[in-house]
Design a protein around this nucleic acid. Structure first.
Lengths: 212, 212
DNA sequence: CACTTTGGATTGTTGAACAATACGGATCAG
DNA sequence: CTGATCCGTATTGTTCAACAATCCAAAGTG
């Protein structure tokens, strides 16, 4: 793996972990010093992450961490419904990825008991990544990972993200139960309900955070 | 627009037009001379196009035009069905993008009469881009454009791509007719049938081309 | 107050240089 | 002849320094 690729992974993780808040500009000289790479290498990394939607590039004004608008949130959830629901509707409960879903869900429930809010968020995302993995489609997985990363940016700007993650662990459990017990069609409907609810919650929290 | 962005558009077009065939390596020194940019600028362009899937980057071996495998073709069509069918199923025939579809279709029929095979391919793609435009989703549009570009790479390697485009103009017409006359659900089913047929044809031609 | 100017800071791009790696061919043992 | 090893060359990965182009904010101007 090349230096620039590794930096992309690292920077991506740092951003998702909240070290660089959405909207903040990423100075080329500052970060090239911080990560001890040249400006050119850093700029290659920027190009890749910008193409993924995590960074926003404005010519002659540099890159900044994307700060999704409400319209973006709506669009992200539209993508999620399109990809996740369609995938589940076309999958069988015998698919190996179901195990990934179950594992992630179990982890989420453990974190819920321990009140590890950050862990819940990650486990929740792993659960939905498991759903998309049902498709066996590298491209759909990539698409999902990109919008999921953007969505995490949104959570970074909200006041109490745990209030948004915690109640939905039970919903995810229901999605999995219905999917395995009643089949893909019923599971997909349950999943769609989940996503619509989640979208509503996030939009509400978004409005609240930007009004304060 | 920055120099590197413009080069990305240009190179993308050149590739789609078949100037650089799938699988061919793109030497940094050669292309930086040809396009009269520095290696560093060219490498930024490479990063962007690689992230879009049009170029394939292998560390220390440079970038080459992606040469989609049969598995890739299957995956591309899976993405198309997911995005296109779901979009149409959730749209109304009154949407302004329907006009784009109609225009593209008319253009395709004109090119068909004139036996302009290249034009048919482009118009066909514009028609399906119109379908995705029904979603009003920038991200779904971007996803589609990426997989559509990859699919064009596949056509470049086939022997007589016109045989693959021409018969499907009528199918597209039927999709539009059914969508406007019978509604989204019926249109989506017709569209799915189209995509499955198209996939089958492409896979067949792919096998034929790689056996010869 | 609105408008222009100007200077500093940041980005965009270049060219050269060197390090790191991959590839192909030469060499050599068996 | 076969296979393995070694080496030289070409290409990519990365750095650095420099300059051009652009933006921004602060200063001045009417």
């Amino acid at each position: 793996m090349t230096h620039s690729d590794a930096l992309a992974d690292l920077l991506r993780q740092r951003i998702i972990d909240g070290e660089f808040m959405p909207g903040s500009r990423l100075s080329e000289s500052a970060l090239s010093n911080q990560f001890e790479v040249s400006r050119n290498t850093l700029r290659e990394t920027y190009r890749a992450l910008a193409e993924q939607g995590l960074l926003t590039h404005v010519p002659h004004r540099g890159v900044s961490v994307s700060a999704p608008s409400m319209a973006d949130v709506v669009d992200i959830y539209r993508c999620r419904r399109t990809v996740e629901c369609t995938t589940m509707r076309g999958s069988r409960p015998e698919h190996p990825a179901v195990q990934r879903m179950a594992d992630a869900l179990h982890l989420a429930e453990t974190h819920l008991a321990a009140e590890d809010w950050l862990g819940i968020g990650s486990a929740n995302m792993a659960f939905h990544e498991g759903i998309v993995a049902l498709s066996d489609s590298p491209r759909l997985m990539r698409m999902f990972r990109n919008v999921a990363a953007e969505l995490r940016l949104v959570f970074l700007t909200l006041d109490d993200p745990h209030a948004l993650h915690a109640p939905f662990v039970a919903s995810n459990r229901r999605v999995l139960t219905v999917f395995t017990a009643e089949g893909p069609e019923a599971g997909a409907l349950e999943l769609e309900r989940y996503l619509l609810n989640s979208e509503r919650s996030v939009l509400g929290a978004y409005t609240r955070a930007n009004r304060a």
